[in-house]
């Protein structure tokens, strides 16, 4: 909302880009629209629940008919689900991966829709650009793969990491330390930040380019033809990035799900 005010007051004759004072202004929507039992429903919270409703709704309407000869929509949802099941859950983890299919499917669809809000008209804000969502999902993945590792391999899961038998004895303490930090500390953080940073970057680029383009085109009489023409260039660039972001949206949802499966696989099917 700061951005809107920034738009209102943006003077391109004095500055090159219309930007809010702080980058947080592009992401922080902490004002409650309304409250439910004292819980503040901010714009972001509302969008999180909207993502949930869309995830559930899409799958529900896709699968409710259970038609033997599916329509295009049913086929799309079925294909999406069988892709996650066959290519990610079973494809990466193996036959035991079917146990993790509900979780992997949930994160895939939830992240995909959360990401897609970035380019959704009248929303234009990915919920995954708020650290709460990627962090929560990454920590859930962490809990699952650590738990699965201990369940499948007992305590040797942990000892296998900190004292890897496949490397020379002299290097084991060093490699073990690196592995320990890598698996137990870096993985959840990198998983969360990868998703978060991609969506933040996309949102910043799209917001600033579109706002600057909008302002420069609408105030062309005041700022002159040259700066106004720049506005069109920003607009064209924003369109290109818009297309690029559509790929990022899908790719990041896929990568997060894929890496979750890979982490579970390396915990369950340990090769020391």
């Amino acid at each position: 909302m700061e951005l809107i005010l920034a738009v209102a007051e943006c003077d391109l004759s004095e500055s090159a880009v219309c930007a809010p004072e702080s980058v947080n202004d592009l992401f922080e929507f902490r004002t409650a629209i309304f409250e439910v039992f004292g819980f503040p429903i901010t714009r972001t919270v509302f969008l999180i629940f909207l993502a949930m409703a869309l995830s559930v709704g899409l799958i529900y309407f896709g699968l409710r008919k259970k038609a033997t000869q599916p329509g295009k929509f049913q086929l799309s949802i079925e294909s999406l689900m069988t892709f996650v099941r066959d290519e990610i859950a079973i494809g990466i983890i193996g036959p035991t991966g079917i146990k993790y299919f509900p979780y992997l499917m949930s994160i895939f669809i939830f992240i995909l829709i959360g990401n897609a809000f970035e380019v959704t008209p009248f929303v234009n804000f990915p919920i995954t650009s708020r650290m709460a969502i990627p962090l929560f999902l990454a920590l859930t993945t962490w809990v699952i793969f650590v738990f699965a590792g201990f369940k499948a391999n007992g305590f040797s899961y942990f000892t296998g990491i900190i004292w890897p038998s496949s490397v020379p004895v002299a290097l084991r303490p060093l490699v073990g330390l690196i592995e320990f930090f890598s698996i137990f500390l870096v993985r959840p953080f990198s998983l969360a930040v990868r998703l978060f940073a991609n969506l933040v970057a996309g949102h910043v680029m799209l917001s600033l380019l579109l706002v600057t383009a909008w302002v420069s085109i609408t105030t062309i009489g005041d700022i002159g033809a040259i700066k106004g023409a720049f506005g069109i260039a920003w607009w064209a660039l924003a369109l290109g990035i818009f297309m690029f972001e559509m790929i990022v949206i899908l790719l990041q949802a896929y990568i997060f799900t894929l890496l979750s499966a890979v982490y579970i696989d390396t915990s369950v099917n340990v090769e020391h």
């Binding site: 951005l3 738009v7 007051e9 943006c10 004072e21």
Partner: peptide
């Protein structure tokens, strides 16, 4: 693309803020 701006307008609130180049 303008929808972003419009969406922000719909939900806009709070006070005017300083516009900065950086």
């Amino acid at each position: 693309m303008l929808t972003h701006v419009f969406a922000q307008l719909v939900l806009a609130a709070e006070e005017p803020t300083l516009i900065s180049e950086e």
